[in-house]
Design a protein around this nucleic acid. Structure first.
Lengths: 201, 201
DNA sequence: ACAAAAACATACTTACTAGTATGTTTTGAT
DNA sequence: ATCAAAACATACTAGTAAGTATGTTTTTGT
């Protein structure tokens, strides 16, 4: 196999496996050894492709975590250009949270987990995570602006603040839900209040 | 000094110092040695009073973290029996978040941090943290019920769901704020959207 | 005063993990 | 075919941290 292709494949394998492990066990509770041995690789391979664990962490955020938000939360906004704003807002959050597997509900949100575990330990992480939140907020704010333009949403609504409010609640609930192994009462209450909130906009 | 008094004092010193360290550096990044050496004590003293680190963690949650929520978020609800519900709701969250020092804003919320760091690693932690959230939610729901009774709040509002929604947003924002070292734009946006939300109830 | 138990100290073990030094195999350009 | 560099392996270092074993000091009930 060509070297550059092989290199890319190995890097991707490491980043993908790292994301899985980080999500399930946390960044600090995942050693380089467990990641590489899962892939039948060794430390030598890892440190050939990555400078250190921090670089791996940043790569996982920039690629895997960002992709998860892009695919799951941002892309759907643009995939439904004809759906009324409020309806789409409800769809986005309600369907998303209901689509999670029991494991994902118990494990919480990867972005949020990373924010709390290493989000304020290094500027590198901070900026990578901030970038994800801000793109998400921006996309939502655009949708809200569209709703205002179409007179579906009240003119005095601040779109950026509302976007942040929606994201915060979503992340907050996913955190609290981690305490309720297998019990969805929290999620159902969230959906109730969320629909009421969106109606009020 | 009497033994039981001395024992209580030492235990309290350890729990208090542990809370400080856990809040600032996290549970996993705080060693027993740093806690005890801060107090001019040794491992021997610690393991005489606590079975293990897990017991210390649970005690910190049950005492320090719970007390923080009780004092900062729950007690004020009952200290203002004559304030209209919506006004009090705004006061509770807005004044609270504005009262935090720059350090506290950067460090986030202790409950939330614990939830994310060890909240789903052990049933002991899970229950202790759940208890805090549920007492908080219950107190807020009571206030909302009172508002409904007084016709300040719409009758179709679900008080438990709304209480959870308020808590979730607060915790979510405090998480995201951790990415914005010293920048309060997030908090200002939160306040804007929060006031709008409470008005809509 | 004294024996026992509580309170605390010292020294050690064990386990884990990030990172390094160095060696071997594979790939690619000439 | 061959030499250099990339890709990966092996073995090691060093630091950290939870927990234990055991010793010393202080308190307490009699």
């Amino acid at each position: 196999m060509k070297q550059d292709v092989k290199s890319e494949i190995t890097k991707n394998l490491i980043v993908t496996k790292a994301f899985e492990r980080f999500y399930q066990y946390g960044f600090n509770n995942t050693s380089i050894d467990t990641i590489t041995s899962d892939l039948k690789l060794t430390k030598g391979a890892f440190y050939h492709h990555f400078k250190n664990k921090k670089e791996l962490g940043a790569t996982v955020i920039q690629q895997k975590i960002k992709d998860r938000i892009l695919t799951g939360m941002i892309a759907p906004i643009y995939n439904h250009p004809d759906t009324p704003s409020k309806e789409l807002l409800k769809l986005l959050f309600v369907e998303r949270i209901q689509s999670f597997s029991s494991i994902e509900k118990n494990l919480g949100c990867p972005v949020n987990n990373f924010i709390h575990e290493i989000g304020n330990t290094d500027v590198l992480y901070q900026n990578a995570l901030k970038n994800i939140i801000e793109e998400w907020q921006h996309a939502l704010a655009e949708l809200i602006e569209k709703g205002k333009f179409n007179k579906e949403i009240k003119q005095n609504i601040n779109s950026n603040a509302t976007a942040l409010y929606l994201i915060s609640t979503f992340e907050g609930v996913r955190g609290i839900r981690k305490l309720y192994n297998g019990n969805d009462i929290i999620i159902n209450q969230y959906i109730l209040a969320l629909e009421n909130y969106i109606d009020s906009l």
